[in-house]
């Protein structure tokens, strides 16, 4: 392993899950540090300075959401959450607290690796200046000139549609909760008016997706929020 191998801290109480997650990540060239409990995880996170955290939400010694809040006080390390399907609220809380992405148990190893790679890539890119031009599908967005074109033709977006697009593009691959998006784009008094967000995401899909009913880029995370997939 080279010194450049990304360090992943895996906090999960089930030994067998740790085993295959470790195997999958090491296979991808990561260095994996394991922790069984929240307390231990927090110590490891402080001492080992990992590049990524993979965190099980259902830890025996406390709520993973608290750990995220603690961690976010002093670290920007990307956090990938593992959670069961019935924990929608925990997921939202975790994402609102600063987690970057989640995987629902049970998950395929391929999916796990893809998410981990995406998160690591992003954390490395963070240092660079953000590129002003984003491309996905046949859409090009020039953020510096506020120009959106699709297949070479200019697409007209309303100011709110553009703000929503820019926000989503700003966090590629990351799940943004409804609450977050509403607060960012419409303001704090709109956090409960989720229908605004839904209608405007619908507009973006109409204008920028090939098949708005089966979107490829502006994905719905049902009950949680949205994700932009480049």
């Amino acid at each position: 392993m080279s010194a450049a191998a990304p360090k992943v801290l895996l906090i999960e109480d089930e030994k067998q899950i740790r085993r295959f997650v470790r195997a999958a990540l090491e296979d991808d060239g990561c260095q994996v540090v394991e922790a069984e409990t929240m307390a231990q995880g927090l110590i490891e996170a402080g001492s080992r300075k990992p590049d990524l955290l993979v965190l099980d939400l259902g830890l025996p010694d406390g709520n993973g959401v608290d750990l995220i809040r603690d961690l976010r006080g002093w670290s920007d390390v990307p956090i990938l959450i593992l959670s069961a399907r019935s924990q929608e609220n925990d997921k939202i809380d975790a994402l609102d607290a600063g987690a970057d992405d989640y995987l629902t148990k049970p998950f395929a190893v391929g999916e796990l690796r893809a998410r981990v790679r995406a998160l690591l890539r992003r954390s490395y890119r963070n240092g660079d200046a953000a590129t002003p031009v984003v491309e996905f599908g046949d859409v090009t967005v020039d953020l510096s000139r506020r120009l959106v074109s699709r297949g070479g033709e200019t697409v007209h977006l309303t100011p709110l549609e553009y703000r929503l697009l820019a926000t989503l593009l700003g966090h590629p691959g990351r799940v943004l909760t409804q609450r977050n998006l509403l607060r960012e784009i419409w303001g704090p008094s709109y956090v409960e008016s989720s229908h605004y967000l839904r209608v405007y995401v619908g507009h973006l899909r109409q204008k920028l997706e090939d098949d708005p009913t089966q979107p490829k880029h502006f994905l719905t995370e049902t009950g949680v929020g949205y994700r932009f997939q480049p």
């Binding site: 067998q16 899950i17 295959f20 399907r85 148990k105 049970p106 998950f107």
Partner: peptide, 12 residues
């Protein structure tokens, strides 16, 4: 779900 997750992942 925990053992199922392990099962799916280990098989994978």
């Amino acid at each position: 779900r925990t053992p199922l997750t392990a099962l799916v992942g280990l098989a994978d």
